[in-house]
Design a protein around this nucleic acid. Structure first.
Length: 889
RNA sequence: GCGAGAGUAGCAGAGCGGUCAAAUGCGCAAGCUUCAGGAGCUUGUCCCUCAGCGGGUUCGCAGGUUCAAAUCCUGCCUCUCGCACCA
């Protein structure tokens, strides 16, 4: 009973989380607590979060969530004995900094650097266990020098080239974009700004060279299914046939996946964006084609999504490779210019798009594949039949199954030298040049006599000039000192490339630099990179599925083939965290005004509480909504744990507690490994709900250690408070001793709970006020110490001035006469007996007898509660005499 | 349209063949505590009934497999995300 009082007095106070957190953050920092080296006999584990773009507004809740997930994992792995590399850095080049800097009138460098400083302090406030010695920023010449180096390496390898192409231009960014950066026809940073098509000469990286490998190895990755399917889709491999058509005495290749429908071609369509469209346009048709092109250009991008298929006859005819028929060639708005050859063969009977087009322009429809079940005729055809069937109207191929016919016709075309097998990808080469300032200068020089000349490695880095004019066009062009140079080959006057690199170039190899960030001779040392890489656990959002994650995979494969690393996949394991929504259920965003600043939460509740909250609402891979009450509840949990463990006295752990602790260790270990952090918190919640005030030193240490990945600060404090040596963060992960787990504990606890509830019923029935002293007898035949458990629960609840007397009855089956004697005696001897609680294993006859005696001897105020686990005959029970008696099973 | 994922109590969210009327948190209700408020503690919270036992109906909808389904299969509906005329 006294313990309850003690506990209550402590509860009312709250701990000073701010000073505790500051204290330990400083100690970790001062002692370089999480700095690692590769010279370790321990197994390595590389945990990495996608490094942030350091925006001026600082760390947002999504970052905090992301890093909490990674930090818990890192701390867990570290404690589990791994040599853990857990670094962070800053993807600090990029347009937002440049734009913000222009707006605020400061240099992007200053802007970025102060943003990074802010970021670092916020990350430290979260208690993240980074190796701060390995930090990097991509805008640092010491970093981008190696961007330039690697660019030259790729150039040397033939993986970088320059070409004039139809490219995507964002007017808001005033730069070109890569295919991957065009979302829904708009710029990925400006979803309200449709991209414009421009014809410009740009730098490309041959990602398509690795298309097959990028696709094939997706399946070997332990990534979320969703991301894998997005990548596969993006790479988009199709098998088909190239067919050669003669148009105006020139030969053109056309790609199709349905060579079986070759005899059904009634027209061809050239993309309206096709660079050689004019080759097809005859003089007579020039006017109408031109007006069609004008119309397309004036079409607003937002209407493109459900644009009607339109086209115009070019005046040219193609010769059908097998029948020799003349086929009209159209220009059309629905043909993708840079897929295949930008020209498609149209089979309106068996392709929806071709069908729509043919209907609109009244072009004949010819059926060449008949479905097996129901015959179709052109007249009644209301939509294209795109399924498989049997070939008709196809010369010698009639009667073949369409799947077979694809093969046969392709073979025939090959034998006739009129085609061949082909594989097409949706993946395009990566356009890496950008017409902006705040990025890595592309290390190339244009010389009038030598042409494109790579900058010699000894001249790297090509530094970004400080004095440039922001405003119109590429700022780098405004710097004469930068632009004007000498040709490294012939020493004559030459011009520097003024384009900078897409910042995705920077993030395609940063994980390699973390392994060896102080290397001044090379981007990284091969041996060291091979030691740490690949990243054992990568953590980040899903938005990079088709951008960063493709580029980085490509990069590593290219570096492998150049001989710089020995592995082909940078991130075998990827975890995607969910999105955080505001209290209103919408994604947290400034424009919605539902943003919660992590720092506000930290100053109100502490970092440990915030960390717990972020991972306890839902499984970390799912979206969840912020909730103030949830945040408070997490804070209460952290306080409770801290205060309870602070007050634990060192002694002997009860067997019940030992069981609880060990099974919690087991569960939490499993949960962390599977990223089910929310379940781990539930398990810990239950543990600290029940655990006693006296523990052995070892068990107390286990309790602290098992929560330390989640709440590192309070754990360090508790660790020190109880005199353990070193950092809790450096201690070993507690191991589970199965022999101390009592599997029947749950059942026992349930029984105790039940009895306590029975007691409340007794009180209720008797209208017992809490201030009254009453006596309750617990008769217990159990082997374990039920009595003390019940007593403890009642004591802790502090509700009632119970006098609880222990009555040992033993095995009631054998002692029914004794029970019969005992019960009335108890009642007689005690003035205010309100209840007698008997427990399990009684024979029904015993109950009946006892009950009868009681009801005879007692007034209506007395109650008999019989707790029975082995069910007696329910029918007989109903007929039990005497009221009010409780019979609880 | 194609691809992926999801639909569980007032809400959030576990469970993914039996131990499920379903963890945990929030919310709500009652009791205790308190000068009061807050906090804290205890209990309850699908429906009926009860002091308890018990019974009924549930896990998007409709079927099916099974001795047994929230969990497996089929169809449908709804939602979220990604790609978007890729021939």
């Amino acid at each position: 009973m006294s313990s309850g009082e003690e506990f209550g007095s402590v509860k009312s106070s709250s701990y000073d989380f701010l000073s505790i957190e500051r204290k330990w953050q400083k100690k970790w920092s001062d002692s370089n607590a999480f700095v690692v080296s590769e010279n370790s006999s321990r197994e390595k584990c590389y945990v990495l979060e996608m490094f942030p773009y350091p925006s001026g507004s600082g760390l947002h809740m999504g970052h905090a969530f992301n890093y909490t997930i990674g930090d818990i994992f890192s701390r867990f792995k570290r404690m589990s004995g791994f040599n853990v590399l857990y670094p962070t850095g800053y993807d600090s080049f990029g347009l937002p900094a440049e734009n913000a800097a222009i707006k605020a009138g400061v240099n992007p460098k200053n802007f970025t650097d102060s943003a990074i400083t802010k970021f670092i302090s916020q990350q430290k406030a979260l208690g993240l266990s980074y190796d701060w010695d390995r930090t990097l920023k991509t805008s640092d010449p010491e970093y981008y020098k190696w961007n330039q180096y690697l660019f030259l390496k790729l150039l040397e390898r033939g993986l970088v080239y320059r070409k004039k192409a139809s490219i995507n231009w964002c007017s808001k960014c005033s730069t070109v974009l890569a295919n991957e950066q065009v979302h829904n026809g708009a710029c990925w940073r400006h979803l309200d700004t449709p991209v414009e098509l421009r014809h410009l000469e740009q730098w490309f990286i041959k990602t398509t060279e690795y298309a097959d490998e990028l696709l094939n190895y997706v399946d070997s990755l332990q990534w979320p299914e969703r991301i894998k399917s997005m990548q596969k889709n993006w790479i988009g491999k199709s098998h088909g046939t190239n067919i050669i058509f003669d148009i105006n005495k020139k030969f053109w290749t056309i790609f199709t996946t349905r060579p079986d429908t070759l005899f059904g071609i009634t027209f061809l369509v050239v993309s309206a964006q096709h660079p050689l469209l004019s080759d097809f346009v005859v003089t007579k048709q020039k006017k109408s084609v031109d007006s069609f092109l004008r119309k397309i250009r004036s079409t607003k991008q937002e209407d493109v999504i459900d644009l009607e298929k339109e086209g115009v006859f070019t005046g040219s005819y193609a010769v059908h490779p097998l029948t020799g028929e003349n086929i009209p060639v159209y220009a059309g708005n629905f043909v993708v210019a840079d897929y295949g050859s930008g020209i498609v063969m149209a089979v309106p009977a068996h392709d929806e798009r071709d069908y729509d087009f043919a209907k609109k322009y009244d072009i004949p429809i010819k059926i060449v594949v008949q479905p097996k079940e129901k015959k179709i005729v052109p007249k009644s055809l209301s939509e294209a039949f795109i399924g498989e069937g049997v070939l008709v109207n196809s010369g010698s191929f009639n009667g073949l199954d369409s799947v077979v016919a694809r093969e046969k016709i392709t073979e025939f075309l090959i034998s006739e030298k009129k085609g061949g097998r082909s594989v097409q990808f949706k993946l395009r080469d990566w356009l890496v040049s950008r017409q902006r300032y705040w990025g890595t200068p592309i290390p190339v020089i244009y010389c009038n006599s030598c042409g494109i000349v790579p900058v010699p490695v000894k001249d790297l880095p090509i530094l970004l000039p400080a004095n440039v004019t922001f405003g119109s066009g590429n700022p780098l062009e405004s710097s004469d000192i930068f632009v004007n140079t000498k040709c490294p080959r012939c020493n004559s006057a030459a011009r520097r490339e003024t384009d900078t690199m897409d910042t995705f170039f920077d993030s395609s190899w940063y994980f390699l630099r973390f392994a060896n960030n102080k290397n001044f001779k090379a981007p990284f040392d091969k041996k060291i990179a091979n030691y740490w890489m690949p990243v054992d656990q990568y953590i980040g959002g899903a938005e990079h599925a088709c951008m960063h994650l493709i580029y980085a995979r490509f990069f590593v494969k290219a570096l492998r083939d150049i001989g710089m690393v020995d592995f082909g996949e940078p991130f075998p394991r990827l975890f995607n965290q969910g999105m955080i929504h505001g209290v209103d259920g919408f994604v947290m965003s400034k424009s919605r005004g539902n943003v919660i600043d992590p720092l506000d939460s930290i100053s109100k509740y502490g970092a440990d509480s915030l960390r717990v909250f972020l991972i306890s609402v839902a499984s970390p891979d799912k979206d969840f909504s912020w909730s103030d009450t949830g945040m408070e509840s997490s804070n209460k949990l952290v306080q409770k744990i801290f205060l309870h463990l602070s007050n634990v006295s060192i002694g002997k752990t009860s067997s019940v507690d030992a069981s609880r602790i060990n099974s919690a260790i087991k569960t939490v270990t499993k949960n962390i490994e599977q990223f089910k952090y929310n379940m781990a918190i539930i398990c810990l919640r239950e543990l600290f709900e029940n655990i006693g005030d006296e523990l052995s030193s070892d068990d107390l240490s286990s309790c602290i250690r098992v929560i330390s990945p989640f709440c590192p600060h309070i754990c360090e404090e508790l660790w020190e408070l109880h005199g353990f040596q070193g950092f809790a963060s450096h201690s070993s992960w507690p191991s589970c001793d199965d022999s101390r787990i009592d599997n029947s504990l749950d059942a026992k606890e349930n029984l105790v709970d039940q009895i306590v509830k029975d007691i409340y019923h007794v009180m209720e029935l008797n209208k017992i006020r809490s201030c009254e002293k009453i006596t309750i007898f617990v008769a217990e035949p159990w082997k374990f110490d039920l009595f003390s458990s019940v007593k403890k629960l009642l004591d802790d609840s502090r509700d009632v001035g119970f006098i609880l007397r222990k009555v040992l009855i033993g095995d009631m089956k054998k002692q029914s006469p004794e029970v019969s004697r005992l019960v009335p005696l108890l009642i007689k001897d005690t003035k205010k007996v309100s209840g007698v609680i008997l427990s399990q294993n009684e024979e029904f006859e015993v109950l009946k007898k006892s009950n009868k005696i009681i009801s005879e001897k007692c007034g209506s105020k007395e109650v008999l509660v019989i707790k029975s686990q082995e069910s007696s005959d329910p029918k007989a029970r109903k007929s039990l005499p005497g009221k009010p008696a409780l019979l609880i099973e």
